[in-house]
Lab assay of single mutants.
Amino acid sequence: TYYTVKSGDTLNKIAAQYGVSVANLRSWNGISGDLIFVGQKLIVKKG
């Protein structure tokens, strides 16, 4: 599943929405910090 980042989104918010961990979101998307951008597509695997 792909999720497109919207204004106001955070990794924590997206992780909670999908029932996954922030660590997994980072791993699946090659993100090291907490910086995400509006319009960015993130890979999300269902929890």
Rank of each mutant, 00 (worst) to 15 (best):
T1F: 15
T1E: 15
T1Q: 13
T1L: 14
T1D: 14
T1W: 13
T1R: 08
T1M: 15
T1A: 10
T1N: 13
T1P: 10
T1V: 14
Y2K: 06
Y2T: 10
Y2W: 13
Y2Q: 09
Y2P: 05
Y2A: 07
Y2L: 10
Y2N: 07
Y2S: 08
Y2F: 11
Y3S: 02
Y3K: 02
Y3F: 04
Y3N: 01
Y3V: 07
Y3A: 05
T4G: 04
T4D: 07
T4Y: 12
T4I: 11
T4P: 03
T4R: 06
T4W: 10
T4E: 13
V5Q: 00
V5D: 00
V5R: 00
V5I: 07
V5N: 01
V5P: 02
V5L: 02
V5W: 05
V5H: 00
V5M: 03
V5T: 05
V5E: 00
K6T: 11
K6Q: 15
K6G: 09
K6V: 13
K6W: 03
K6N: 09
K6F: 04
S7G: 10
S7R: 10
S7C: 06
S7H: 14
S7W: 10
S7D: 15
S7F: 12
S7V: 14
G8N: 07
G8W: 05
G8K: 06
G8C: 05
G8H: 07
G8T: 06
G8R: 04
G8L: 05
G8Q: 06
G8D: 08
G8V: 03
G8P: 03
D9Q: 02
D9N: 02
D9L: 01
D9T: 02
T10S: 10
T10K: 05
T10N: 08
T10A: 05
T10P: 01
T10R: 04
T10C: 04
T10V: 05
T10Y: 04
T10Q: 06
L11G: 00
L11W: 04
L11T: 03
L11P: 03
L11C: 04
L11K: 00
L11D: 01
L11V: 07
L11R: 00
L11E: 01
N12H: 13
N12D: 14
N12W: 11
N12Y: 14
N12G: 15
N12L: 15
N12K: 13
N12I: 13
N12P: 12
K13H: 10
K13W: 14
K13P: 02
K13F: 11
K13I: 11
K13E: 15
K13M: 12
K13V: 09
K13L: 12
K13S: 15
K13Q: 13
I14D: 00
I14T: 01
I14H: 00
I14Y: 01
I14E: 00
I14Q: 00
I14M: 03
I14N: 00
I14G: 00
I14R: 00
I14A: 01
I14F: 02
A15S: 12
A15C: 05
A15W: 01
A15L: 02
A15H: 03
A15Y: 01
A15T: 02
A15P: 00
A15Q: 02
A15D: 01
A15G: 08
A15V: 03
A16Y: 10
A16V: 11
A16R: 11
A16Q: 12
A16I: 11
A16H: 13
Q17F: 13
Q17K: 11
Q17N: 10
Q17Y: 12
Q17A: 11
Q17E: 14
Q17I: 14
Q17M: 12
Q17P: 01
Q17G: 07
Q17H: 14
Q17V: 11
Q17T: 12
Q17L: 15
Y18Q: 08
Y18D: 01
Y18I: 09
Y18A: 08
Y18H: 13
Y18R: 04
Y18S: 07
Y18V: 10
Y18L: 12
Y18W: 14
G19P: 02
G19A: 10
G19D: 13
G19L: 09
G19R: 08
G19Q: 12
G19C: 10
G19E: 11
G19V: 06
G19K: 10
V20S: 05
V20Q: 08
V20W: 03
V20N: 04
S21E: 09
S21H: 07
S21R: 05
S21N: 08
S21L: 07
S21G: 06
S21Q: 07
V22I: 12
V22E: 10
V22C: 06
V22R: 04
V22P: 09
V22D: 05
V22K: 07
V22A: 10
V22Q: 06
A23Y: 06
A23H: 13
A23V: 10
A23C: 13
A23E: 13
A23Q: 12
A23R: 07
N24C: 07
N24G: 06
N24L: 11
N24T: 12
N24W: 09
N24K: 09
N24V: 12
N24E: 15
N24F: 08
L25W: 00
L25S: 00
L25R: 00
L25C: 02
L25A: 01
L25N: 00
L25G: 00
L25K: 00
L25I: 11
L25M: 06
L25Y: 00
R26W: 04
R26K: 13
R26C: 08
R26P: 00
R26M: 13
R26I: 15
R26D: 02
R26T: 08
R26Y: 05
R26F: 04
R26V: 11
S27M: 15
S27C: 14
S27A: 11
S27G: 09
S27Y: 14
S27E: 15
S27H: 15
S27V: 11
S27K: 14
S27I: 12
W28N: 04
W28S: 03
W28T: 04
W28D: 05
W28G: 02
W28Q: 04
W28F: 05
N29E: 00
N29K: 00
N29Y: 01
N29V: 01
N29C: 01
N29T: 02
N29L: 01
N29W: 01
N29P: 00
G30W: 07
G30Y: 10
G30S: 12
G30N: 13
G30K: 10
G30V: 08
G30F: 11
I31Q: 03
I31F: 08
I31D: 03
I31E: 03
I31T: 05
I31R: 02
I31N: 03
I31M: 10
I31K: 02
I31S: 03
I31W: 04
S32G: 10
S32H: 15
S32F: 12
S32K: 10
S32W: 09
S32T: 15
S32N: 14
S32E: 12
S32A: 14
S32I: 13
G33N: 10
G33H: 09
G33V: 07
G33M: 08
G33S: 09
G33A: 09
G33F: 07
G33C: 06
G33T: 09
G33P: 03
D34T: 07
D34R: 06
D34K: 06
D34G: 07
D34N: 10
D34P: 05
D34L: 06
D34W: 08
D34V: 07
D34A: 06
D34Q: 08
D34I: 06
D34H: 09
D34F: 08
D34C: 10
L35D: 14
L35Y: 15
L35F: 14
L35V: 14
L35E: 15
L35H: 10
I36S: 03
I36Q: 02
I36K: 02
I36L: 11
I36A: 04
I36C: 04
I36T: 04
I36M: 06
I36R: 02
F37Y: 11
F37C: 09
F37P: 04
F37D: 10
F37M: 10
F37K: 08
F37I: 12
V38K: 07
V38C: 06
V38P: 13
V38L: 09
V38Q: 08
V38I: 14
V38M: 08
V38N: 07
V38F: 06
V38E: 14
V38T: 09
V38S: 08
V38A: 09
G39E: 05
G39K: 04
G39L: 03
G39H: 05
G39A: 04
G39T: 04
G39P: 01
G39V: 01
Q40K: 05
Q40E: 08
Q40M: 11
Q40A: 06
Q40V: 05
Q40Y: 04
Q40R: 04
Q40P: 01
Q40T: 06
Q40F: 04
K41F: 08
K41H: 11
K41R: 12
K41E: 13
K41C: 08
K41S: 12
K41T: 13
K41Q: 14
L42W: 01
L42G: 00
L42S: 00
L42D: 00
L42P: 00
L42R: 00
L42Y: 02
L42F: 04
L42T: 01
I43V: 11
I43E: 07
I43Y: 08
I43Q: 09
I43D: 04
I43C: 07
V44T: 07
V44Y: 04
V44D: 00
V44E: 00
V44H: 02
V44I: 14
V44M: 06
V44W: 03
V44K: 02
V44Q: 01
V44R: 01
V44G: 01
K45R: 12
K45C: 06
K45G: 14
K45D: 15
K45Q: 14
K45S: 15
K45I: 13
K45N: 15
K46I: 15
K46H: 15
K46F: 14
K46S: 15
K46V: 15
K46Q: 15
K46P: 15
K46C: 12
K46L: 15
K46D: 15
K46A: 15
K46T: 15
G47H: 14
G47F: 12
G47A: 13
G47P: 14
G47K: 11
G47S: 14
G47V: 14
G47N: 13
G47Q: 13
G47Y: 13
G47E: 15
G47C: 09
G47R: 09
